[in-house]
Amino acid sequence: MDYQWDFATLWQYRYLLLEGLAYTAGFTVLTVVSGVVVGTIFALARLSGLRVVTVPVMAVVELFRCTPVLVQLVWCYYALPMLTGVEISPPMAAFLTLTLYGAAFYSEIIRGGIVSIDIGQWDAGRAIGMRRGQLMGKIILPQALRRMVPPLVNQSVLQLKNTSLLSVLAVPDLLYQGQLVTSATYRPLETYTLIAAIYLAVLFPLTRTAHWLEDRNKA
């Protein structure tokens, strides 16, 4: 194969790609935060044991866990407005979908972390007169968080990768900008290789961190 590699052409599009990276990173951070917040609410709702809360929350969690995020994204952007009569922008649809999708998985991680704490810890905290919030804050969550962090980081890595799906709604994330660059340069090989390399450069340190945290917890 005598293909003439030419990464140099891409240099002039660096700001376009940087902007894409900023969108990707921004959407990731935003939906990780909102996903963890909503996920925590879901987890606590499920732990409440009140059927009026647990049943609908379980339904939402399973709905988002058992359908592809691309389907959710498209449904939320094209179908939801027909149902509600309210138009939403692509970034808004993307934000809503990724938040709930993330929350569905985060809630299971958070709930799992909390219920994995030995019942004796609850007994001991209650026995010294701790109230529910004190028990959660001082005894249960500090122990549960250590167990939750590695899977939360892993889930957040997936969350970042899922932002590449936003390109189908023309949200200008890294992949979408890559498509623009490709159509301008006719250099898909260099462009998409570069895009993949950027994802790798961002995600590899994150997955290493997750590994490191797991090892540290085992020790």
Binding site: G120, D123, A124, I139
Partner: peptide, 10 residues
């Protein structure tokens, strides 16, 4: 005060 069979230290 309560003391448990399995200690339940934090």
């Amino acid at each position: 005060g309560m003391v448990f069979q399995n200690f339940n230290l934090f």
